[in-house]
Design a protein around this nucleic acid. Structure first.
Length: 217
DNA sequence: CACCAGGCAAGTA
DNA sequence: TACTTGCATGGT
């Protein structure tokens, strides 16, 4: 049986409306946010990005000039700042060396080559790479995160221990490869879990309740 | 006090 | 391939 992914999308969109993701003004800011939000709440990431903005460090040249220690200080609220500041310096250095410091040149790669390039960067795994592909490069990549796995397994669409690629294929195999659809779908899953699943006991009033598997008798 | 949050890399078996 | 551990802050 095919999972009711379209129906779930319709229910989420009706309940929450468009989410207008990614919450960033530029591609570079989006990429920084993708690294900063790794295993970290967005409220902490927002503080880190505010520090970067206040210090005019949401620009490529400023990040090139800044030391890793300075960046670490700015992004401190986002946690793991020693690692993430290294990832950022590494990313900026790679874009300079391999793409002349141009995001346009980087994003001129076709989707498979771009994904492979992003995954080669230290600190960029499958979720971060697909987030950048979808929200910065506007490619039809489905972003899988802890929320996506939670919703998928809760509804019996995937197994508890499904791999990243298995979860991604659940969506890409059953939906049209549409950037706007993938954008909204992932954002709605995050909205659902943050606002509802994490705060409401026992899924009471869950927008996806009509789709939940019947409890065993 | 414990536990979690829009992961990832490095080490081990 | 599959599992474990360290990374770090701020909120509940």
């Amino acid at each position: 049986m095919t999972p009711p992914l379209r129906q779930a999308y319709g229910l989420l969109l009706a309940r929450f409306g468009p989410q207008h993701w990614w919450p960033a003004q530029t591609r570079l800011e989006m990429m920084l946010g993708a690294i900063l939000t790794q295993n970290t709440s967005w409220t902490n990431v927002a503080k880190a990005i505010a520090h970067l903005r206040r210090n005019h460090a949401l620009q490529f040249d400023a990040l090139e000039r800044a030391t890793q220690e300075q960046i670490a200080e700015w992004i401190r609220p986002a946690g793991y700042f020693n690692q993430k500041s290294g990832y950022i310096k590494n990313m900026v250095g790679t874009i300079r060396e391999r793409f002349g410091g141009s995001l346009n040149t980087l994003f001129a790669l076709d989707t498979p080559a771009l994904r492979k390039e992003l995954l080669s960067w230290k600190g960029v795994g499958p979720e971060t790479a697909d987030s950048i592909l979808l929200y910065a490069a506007k490619r039809p990549a489905f972003v899988v995160d802890a929320y996506t796995k939670r919703v998928g397994s809760r509804h019996g669409w995937i197994g508890e221990k499904a791999t990243y690629d298995e979860v991604a294929r659940l969506f890409t195999d059953h939906l049209p490869g549409d950037v706007a659809l993938f954008n909204e779908y992932h954002a709605l899953i995050v909205r659902l879990c943050k606002e509802h699943c994490n705060t409401q006991p026992k899924c009471a009033g869950c927008p996806l309740e009509p789709l939940l598997p019947k409890p065993p008798r």
